[in-house]
Design a protein around this nucleic acid. Structure first.
Length: 563
DNA sequence: CGGTGAACGTA
DNA sequence: CGTACGTTCACCGA
């Protein structure tokens, strides 16, 4: 950490502490946040906190740009995998303490007298047995100034230990921890700023799918019954079928001669012509989805009076450490995307990474042949030519290799991949094998992917299927997880390099970024976003052998065709 | 009332 | 559908 680490931590009673080489400050959160803001602007510092969600909220609220940070929780998740990353656990891990001995929070009952004294501390927050006090950082903690300052010092100590451990993990792990930390702070900004929406268009699109806005509950029931009737009119005598009950739907379909194992869309799709009820049901499902999940209730609850859609964001949820978002931000139906529109005076810069996963595979596996293929705008073109097959066949084969597809006719092309890209294929095979053996893996950036706690409870007759599923999971995780790290490194760079233009990232979608930009700055923001990808990719891979491509365009609506 | 599976939206 | 996630619904068992 070249920049000087400075802790910024908060307490549940609205105070904060700033602790560093030249600062030791404690007081009301807004006052200390103001001091932190000055430090962020004037000095080369890296803020350290236990977790952005808790500690950095005052900084996000007042719009402090936070150039550099270290998020102990994110670094911990990177180091040991999984989601659990409380301060006590991160500290114990960093200091090599047995997690079985973690102090439990006082429960206010007889058990409290049986546990070591939580208040017996060497400093204000570290116990004599080396663990952090269990109460520290919890909602019921009321630290005095000395304790809050010690809490900040503990975060600094913990971060230093983590950095040392990550340095042993691999050459990119510290840099990954830094960009994951930046992503965690970005999550606060995303939650704060929201996604700009055009409410009138949203109302119109919802109306087209779900009908007019109900005036009361009776009206809502009437509209709902009307929607059901469009399906049930095709099956006289079965008008009382509950379309929301899959078993009843299955029975209904069987009665009209459509026998299916389940009623999923891709199972029913081939039967569209068999009976009119099938098509009606599939159309009903689509409308019902919008009516229930992305309807008026959603609009009223999740879109603020400032016409922005807000939800919670996490920086590294899930097995492979992808970002996640709530309230529909990550799964808004494409039909509704015209409603995502830049606000007056602004435009969107929309950018998505092209073919990111096979390009990431080339980087993480170190396959020189596949790296050569990444120099093409369309990676599948040189692969197809090398394999002597049509492009669609090459694409299916590459995806099959990465994800372990079992169906389909990729067989012959897969053998070609083995010959043409042996290094990449061996890398994937090794991940698959580790999955079978339940052995942990690390992504390219160093995130631990644990396989000892996933798909373990198979009955003996299902053991082989579970093993194979775990193998596919592992093979996918090293590619998807590494791609997520590159994406976050890119997003962190874009955030930093376009801020002075007034640009704000308003959506992250795995391989796609949406920037809300003052109109005059649009082209400059677009150019910087492209540069940011080349810079992050070069830093990430340590070379220019693997090329990453981005399609970036200036649009008014998210749905607009790329220019 | 909480947990589970079906279903389906996105990448 | 290959993997991943979030949300809603009906059902199940307490």
């Amino acid at each position: 950490m070249a920049a000087a680490p400075v802790a910024f931590v908060t307490s549940p009673d609205g105070r904060a502490a700033l602790v560093g080489p030249d600062v030791s400050d404690c007081g009301p959160a807004d006052v200390v946040a103001s001091a932190a803001q000055g430090l962020d602007a004037a000095a080369d510092v890296r803020f350290v906190w236990w977790a952005a969600t808790y500690d950095a909220a005052p900084l996000a609220a007042r719009g402090v740009p936070v150039a550099r940070c270290w998020d102990v929780a994110e670094a911990h998740r990177l180091l040991v995998g999984g989601w659990e990353a409380g301060a006590q656990l991160a500290w114990a891990t960093a200091y090599g303490l047995d997690r079985a001995g973690l102090p439990r929070a006082a429960r206010g009952d007889l058990f409290d007298t049986l546990t070591p004294d939580d208040a017996d501390t060497a400093s204000g927050v570290v116990r004599r047995d080396g663990y952090l006090r269990a109460v520290a950082g919890t909602a019921s903690w009321c630290p005095d100034d000395e304790e809050l300052l010690a809490w900040g010092q503990a975060a600094l100590d913990c971060a230093a230990r983590q950095a040392s451990a990550l340095a042993d993990v691999g050459p990119r792990a510290i840099s990954t921890a830094q960009s994951e930390s930046a992503a965690a702070f970005l999550c606060l900004e995303l939650a704060r700023d929201g996604l700009p929406l055009d409410r009138a268009t949203a109302e119109k699109l919802i109306g087209e799918a779900a009908g007019p806005r109900p005036v009361d509950d009776a009206d809502a029931r009437r509209i709902r019954a009307e929607r059901d009737r469009a399906v049930l009119k095709h099956v006289p005598g079965r008008e009382h079928t509950d379309l929301r009950n899959p078993l009843q739907v299955k029975d209904l379909l069987a009665a009209v001669g459509v026998s299916v194992p389940n009623t999923r869309k891709w199972v029913l799709e081939p039967y569209r012509e068999s009976h009119a009820v099938v098509g009606a049901l599939l159309d009903w499902r689509k409308a019902e989805r919008i009516a229930t999940t992305y309807g008026y209730g959603w609009l009223d609850a999740q879109v603020g009076p400032d016409d922005r859609l807000r939800g919670g964001w996490t920086a590294s949820d899930g097995a492979a450490g992808r970002m996640t978002a709530q309230n529909g931000l990550h799964n808004l139906p494409t039909d509704l995307r015209p409603a995502v529109a830049a606000h007056p005076g602004h435009v969107f810069v929309r950018a998505d990474l092209g073919q990111i996963e096979p390009r990431v595979l080339a980087a993480v596996s170190g396959d020189a042949n596949l790296a050569a293929a990444t120099r093409a705008d369309d990676l599948y073109a040189p692969v197809a030519s090398t394999l002597g097959v049509e492009r669609p066949v090459a694409k299916v084969a590459v995806l099959a290799a990465m994800y372990g597809q079992r169906s389909g006719a990729a067989g012959e092309a897969l053998k070609g991949l083995e010959r043409a890209y042996p290094v990449a294929m061996r890398y994937l095979d090794a991940a698959y094998a580790a999955g079978l053996r339940r052995e942990p893996l690390r992504t390219y950036g160093g995130r631990l992917v644990r396989l000892d706690a996933v798909l373990t409870d198979a009955a003996p007759e299902n053991a082989a299927a579970y093993d194979a599923a775990r193998g596919r999971f592992a093979r996918n995780a090293v590619v998807q997880g590494s791609a997520a790290e590159l994406f976050k490194a890119w997003a962190a760079t874009v955030r930093a390099t376009t801020r002075d233009l007034g640009a704000r990232i308003v959506l992250c979608l795995h391989d796609e970024l949406l920037l809300h930009v003052p109109e005059p700055a649009a082209q400059e923001a677009r150019a910087r976003l492209v540069t940011a990808l080349q810079d992050s990719a070069r830093r990430w891979t340590g070379s220019t052998q693997v090329r990453f491509v981005v399609d970036a365009s200036v649009v008014r609506r998210w749905s607009e065709a790329k220019e």
